[in-house]
Amino acid sequence: MKTTVSRRTFIKGGLAGTVVATVLPEKKSQAATFEGYPDGMGVLVDLTRCVGCRSCEAACNEEQKLPQPDKPFDDFSVFDEIHHGQKRRTDETRYTVVNRYDVPGLDHPLFRKIQCNHCQEPACLTSCFVNAYTKTPEGAVIYNPNVCVGCRTCMIACPFNIPTFKYSSAFNPRIMKCIFCYDTRLKEGRPPACVEACPQEALTFGKRNKLLEIGRQRIRETPDKYEDHIYGEHEVGGTAWMYLSSVPFDQVGFDTHVPKEPILNYVKDFLGIVPMVLTVWPALFAGFHLLATRKDWLKNKNEDTHEEE
């Protein structure tokens, strides 16, 4: 009898230990050495090439079967739309948007396409408490609507304000966001619909490492044409979609104050104290309790001994 009990306890303890050992520390040890998938794909967006034709928006809408837009995709009045003082952004009807920027001192406007940048260490993914996001080896950050609870922390965490929520649905809401055409194209090694649609090859698709080479080559060979910076090379720990620009990035709507390290690094301070509190607090406060109630305990003990006598 005794052996059975102790064996069962042993197995229980062992199981719990294994679960803890396999589930918890694994992520951390991987994270310490993980530098992104080596063959992850990306896109290099060259602002000097974009002419604002909105072909990418149209192609995205078609590929992702998004709802009909308010205005046709060849209507360029959308560039003048302003909401809350902001240019157009992604929402539940569009995964990508092109905006026009009139830069002082430049005789022609510049256009910037926004979409998910598919970070190397995505903030949406690390902030999600139901693991709805996955960074695939191909480089895409994809989303699983079947486990999402709609807390929208990913939208809080995304430094580029990309994920949007289908607020209009009461029974089937979900996060709406660019997935690099993962299901229909990227998985098979094909470029996303927007890249294929771009007439100007303002969007260059390829392995992220290769794109960095291409970007540096463009800057090196035509230094007058480009800012000496590839936006996304280091921003928030690196992104799969990167940008080249002819003017300082903050003049064309980029947030140049985003950190140069993964968003997760800002959260690690707190995550680090969790095991400490979990292990030290019980002993600490049980100790406080014993100290604080010591007098009562001594009194009780004395009374007991008196009674015994």
Binding site: L24, C128, F129, V130, A132, G150, C151, Y167, L271
Partner: peptide
Amino acid sequence: DLGMWWRLYYPMIVSLGPAAVLFLVA
């Protein structure tokens, strides 16, 4: 506030993301 309020228990049973702060909160 939750979009899919009927999935409140998901982070407990269905799909766990233990490295997230919200997981701790939940």
